[in-house]
């Protein structure tokens, strides 16, 4: 399965995301923000970083870049799209996901191994998890506070569109401890933590078993790739 990873000017984690796709059994395909070409990919990852230097607002300018018109069309047609950190910010700025992301309530950049609960295992990117599974995924952001108006929050909670919720610590002041959400169809998922940084033993978060042994993030990629293969 071909999984495209879009590089924007200022993307940081595009190569890590490509490697995660490979470790998850897919074929990573590098996509460029300035093209109008998705290169026949089957799924798309919008990686973390600081596209356009976070100028205007995080993700705002990237959301209007050429390739995003193709991404929006593909997402609306059901293609799996995962937005990680800055990618999540791009998805909300593109209106593929509701709400917005604002500066962390404590004002500081935060970097930690974050415990999450998987609350929806029916999305394209979470179907390999068990319901309410607790996972550890690295988190690193300055503007990760998820906000939305009360109606939107009620709808997200009511429809099960809160896919990942922060456990133990709310690291950035997100409403309802929301770490990640999906669209109604479940093919578009965005989250602030970085699953691509927890895909390879020796380079992931610490676990009780061993230092840096956490690979919970791999399931994001295997979820999408195996469900695409099942439907192929």
């Amino acid at each position: 399965m071909r999984v495209g990873v879009i590089t924007f000017p200022g993307s940081l984690d595009d190569r890590d995301a490509q490697r995660a796709v490979k470790l998850g059994g897919g074929e990573p395909v590098a996509l460029w923000h300035g093209d109008h070409d998705l290169k026949n990919v089957d799924a798309i990852v919008l990686p973390g970083g600081f596209s356009y230097g976070d100028y205007l607002r995080a993700g705002a300018i990237a959301a209007h870049s050429p390739i995003m018109s193709e991404v929006i069309t593909a997402a609306n047609a059901g293609m799996p799209v995962l937005g990680i950190c800055n990618g999540f910010q791009i998805l909300v700025e593109s209106h593929l996901l509701p709400g917005g992301l604002v500066r962390n309530d404590h004002g500081d950049f935060v970097c930690r191994d974050q415990k999450l609960r998987v609350e929806n295992v029916d999305t394209a990117w979470s179907n390999g998890f068990k319901e309410d599974e607790e996972i550890i995924i690295p988190l690193k952001n300055g503007e990760g506070g998820y906000i939305a108006d009360q109606n939107t929050l009620d709808r997200l909670e009511g429809e099960g569109q809160v896919v990942f919720r922060y456990l133990e610590v709310n690291p950035n002041g997100s409403a309802n401890d929301i770490a990640g959400i999906s669209n109604a169809r479940g093919n578009v998922v965005g989250l602030m933590p970085h699953p691509e940084h927890a895909t390879e033993p020796g380079f992931g978060p610490d676990t009780r078993a061993a230092m840096r042994s956490g690979t919970d993030g791999l399931t994001f990629f295997t979820s999408a790739i195996s469900s695409l293969m099942a439907n192929a």
Partner: peptide, 8 residues
């Protein structure tokens, strides 16, 4: 559409 994000 661009200069402001009317969510925030």
């Amino acid at each position: 559409d661009l200069l402001a994000n009317t969510v925030i």
